[in-house]
Design a protein around this nucleic acid. Structure first.
Lengths: 226, 226
DNA sequence: AAAAAAAGTGTTCAAGTGACACTACTTATT
DNA sequence: AATAAGTAGTGTCACTTGAACACTTTTTTT
């Protein structure tokens, strides 16, 4: 038994698939693309890619996200490994799913439209390749479990946002209405969600105060409950 | 671009590693073994194995669990994929970790001692192979998040158990003391944790009522909060 | 009969959660 | 100048949940 004891065992293609969430006009969205190669070319699918020989899986996910969106250093969370024998009908491929939360406007500036990428509303997902819908559902479940404890949802919003936007975001992710006064009460307890003196006048005649997430204040007292 | 488009990409050994939790004498334990092959033969490690070419990853985890313990159809939960380039110093191996909860007595009857398997207390883990300690920590974190909502902890106990045992189990998993009266109050609200008329006299002179988890009652009203 | 050992049992207070409806401000329209 | 339109913003109360807390009961052993 030399170090090549391993070599008696089969090897597999390993891919990463990215569930890239965005938020626009009160709707939670996912970035989909038409698969650019055979088999199943042209079907709607998540953005994915094969892991390279000298690459950590986490890094592969970052690379794939970057290829599509141009973004670097985005927080990505592993959803899990999907490894049924017949999940990929082309060949045996084990895929590790990751999700990311991104600001749609920042991404659209950089989107490589040669990829025919498209933001699809989570409520209106078309049929998707293989088990990609299952991956999205798992990712959403994980996201729902996390947003109450970790301030990750701000990644989906512009730097400055109104409390109505923030509330609509939570409603979209959780899939349920939230009481406005209770929501704002909780927000006001988080000192790191701070009011600026700027006003957004796009959606109301009165105008709404713009808020910002202050990382430094959060690091001093990282207690988050929404 | 034929169906062998995939073939330009590298392939990897894919393994599963099993975190097998047990509970004995008030302590949460993990089943470890001395690695039976090179490299690193003899180091303490989780029970693992390579995925076969025609095998779902979930099935591979079940197979590995069965090889070591003889148990079938045990609930296993995926912890995640561990895929850093240098996690396995022997060769690139991507490993998917799973955890299972088993009854130690049932397992010990079947344990293949040729594997030199050993139940180690979670508080006293020795240095472990590669990233196995990290896998165990992730598994414990996941377990902690689950036991409050799902009645999985009963897998760790004998069919009949006392409330003191059940409480010690929760204390061991959560790593903190629980108030006895509050705990028993909550248990008494779960009608599917039912008192038998049998009594355990091993640990007290008075004797303690033995309880059982009733699956049928649980299925009728699957609301679990502990 | 007394001591030992763990089982079993309620109440009270604080905190958190959820339900609920009107006023304030600005702009556009007449 | 008045009013209509449209969203922002604001407090209270009832209820539920969670946390703290100590003594009595039962049986066996000495």
């Amino acid at each position: 038994m030399s170090p090549s004891y391993y070599s008696q065992f089969p090897k597999f293609h390993v891919a990463v698939d990215c569930i890239i969430f965005g938020f626009e006009q009160g709707h939670l969205k996912v970035l989909l693309q038409k698969r650019p190669f055979e088999p199943h070319r042209g079907e709607w699918s998540l953005m994915g890619g094969f892991v390279k020989a000298d690459e950590d899986i986490d890094d592969a996910a970052q690379r794939v996200l970057n290829q599509l969106t141009g973004l670097h250093d985005i927080y990505m969370k592993q959803v899990g490994a999907f490894g049924n024998v017949s999940r990929d009908t082309g060949n045996r491929v084990i895929s590790v799913a990751y999700f990311a939360l991104v600001n749609i406007e920042r991404v659209n500036a950089e989107l490589n439209h040669g990829n025919s990428a498209y933001w699809e509303d989570m409520e209106k997902l078309p049929p998707l390749l293989f088990d990609h819908k299952e991956m999205i559902q798992s990712a959403l479940k994980k996201l729902r479990a996390m947003i109450g404890h970790m301030p990750i949802s701000f990644q989906l919003l512009p730097k400055l946002f109104t409390l109505t936007q923030l509330q609509m975001l939570y409603e979209a992710i959780l899939g349920q209405k939230i009481d406005k006064r209770n929501f704002r009460k909780r927000v006001s307890e988080m000192t790191f969600i701070e009011k600026t003196n700027q006003v957004d006048k796009l959606t109301s005649k009165r105008g709404a105060a713009l808020y910002r997430f202050n990382v430094e204040t959060f690091n001093q007292e990282p207690i988050f409950k929404l």
